[in-house]
């Protein structure tokens, strides 16, 4: 059994806006094992990015973690001081963002920025750090790294920039890499390059990756374990096979049906009806119930509990509870 390095327990994160309190993450639980790729998938406003930012505690000023624990190797990092957090970010856990252009400083050369990150988190200084910068660029497949370190971010293409971002994030060999929509801004062919690179690096360096994305294709391609989020809550979590072949939550089912598929060409897509959730106006019960075709009365009134499915993965849907109850009752009669 592999070792758990990060475990998130009952995480609540909320933002204070002038229109009221927004509960962006509402009781999220999961474990991340060493050397695994965990995917967090959901639509915009599902709280997937906020969950990732909460782990690094890089939320915007008006956001804060209101409840829950984030245990890194058994230590609760929500209780860390700012100084402890600084060394946690980078050394233990680092992040790459969606837009590589805005996450690189345009007035410094690539090498300069890489060197700074290396000097900040490792003992290497000066020439040593520069050598490491070149080594890192080489690792992420940037051609002619000696030349590239002298270039400015605008001289690089989108794919190159994302490679530099990955090099920067990996410079201190973190245990966890959080990738927030790392390929959304890139073209398909470049996306394929970056995904391939990430898988390769993961095998080589053995870190765990949290992949935050809305793209089910990327998730299917990359991830060992998947968390499906909707309206700040976890709908379903399990292995990739569980989620894609045995979905147990109505939202996951709907999501899988709504993607165009080679096998269903010529047929109509089956979209999820309704509009995405308004975080300012959350339903009392299950967040998905207004759009769910099989919603029951209880779904409107009560938040569904997380339940283990027969195959071992977890889903939060009242329909499963109902099925379980019926099975138990049926079984009881037979005895």
């Amino acid at each position: 059994m592999s070792e758990t390095i990060l475990s998130v327990k009952n995480l609540h994160t909320s933002f204070t806006t002038d229109k009221g309190e927004v509960l962006a993450v509402n009781g999220v639980n999961f474990n991340l094992d060493k050397g695994k790729i965990l995917g967090i998938v959901g639509e915009s406003g599902s709280g997937k990015s906020v969950t990732a930012y909460s782990i690094l505690q890089i939320l915007e000023k008006n956001g804060r973690i209101t409840e829950g624990q984030i245990l890194y190797k058994g230590e609760d990092i929500t209780k860390y001081t700012e100084k402890q957090l600084r060394s946690f970010r980078g050394k233990c856990c680092s992040i790459i963002f969606q837009d590589p252009m805005t996450s690189l400083n345009p007035v410094f050369t690539v090498g300069n920025q890489l060197k700074e990150a290396i000097e900040l988190h490792t003992g290497r200084k000066g020439k040593d750090a520069e050598a490491r910068a070149v080594e890192m660029l080489n690792l992420v497949g940037v051609n002619e790294p000696e030349k590239r370190v002298k270039q400015y971010p605008y001289e690089l293409s989108g794919g190159m920039r994302q490679r530099v971002m990955i090099a920067m994030a990996l410079a201190c060999e973190p245990d966890i890499l959080i990738a927030d929509e790392p390929t959304t801004a890139l073209d398909v062919t470049i996306q394929a390059q970056i995904l391939e690179l990430m898988q390769e690096l993961q095998k080589k360096l053995g870190m765990a990756i949290i992949m935050v994305t809305h793209d089910l294709g990327v998730i299917a391609d990359m991830c060992d374990e998947i968390i499906v989020m909707y309206g700040g809550r976890v709908c379903e979590r399990g292995t990739a096979e569980d989620i894609f072949y045995r979905p147990a939550h109505e939202y996951t089912k709907g999501l899988l049906q709504s993607i165009p598929n080679v096998d269903t060409i010529g047929e109509k897509l089956k979209p999820i009806p309704g509009t995405p959730i308004n975080l300012l106006n959350m339903p009392k019960g299950c967040a998905f119930c207004p759009r769910c075709e099989n919603a029951m009365k209880i779904c409107i009134e009560q938040v569904p509990p997380e339940m283990q499915m027969p195959d071992g993965h977890f889903a939060s849907c009242w329909l499963n509870v109902k099925a379980e109850m019926e099975a138990q009752q049926g079984g009881g009669k037979n005895e």
Binding site: G274, T275, N278, L280, N281, P283, K284, G285, C289, P290, R291, C292, N294, A295, M296, K297, I298, C299, I300, E301, Q302, W318, V321, K322, M325
Partner: peptide
Amino acid sequence: QIDLKKFEKATDEEKKQQDVMS
């Protein structure tokens, strides 16, 4: 304590109430 009646299918009306525009 779960009332079994609550496991009946919800009507569209009931669902709509949850989905009001501000």
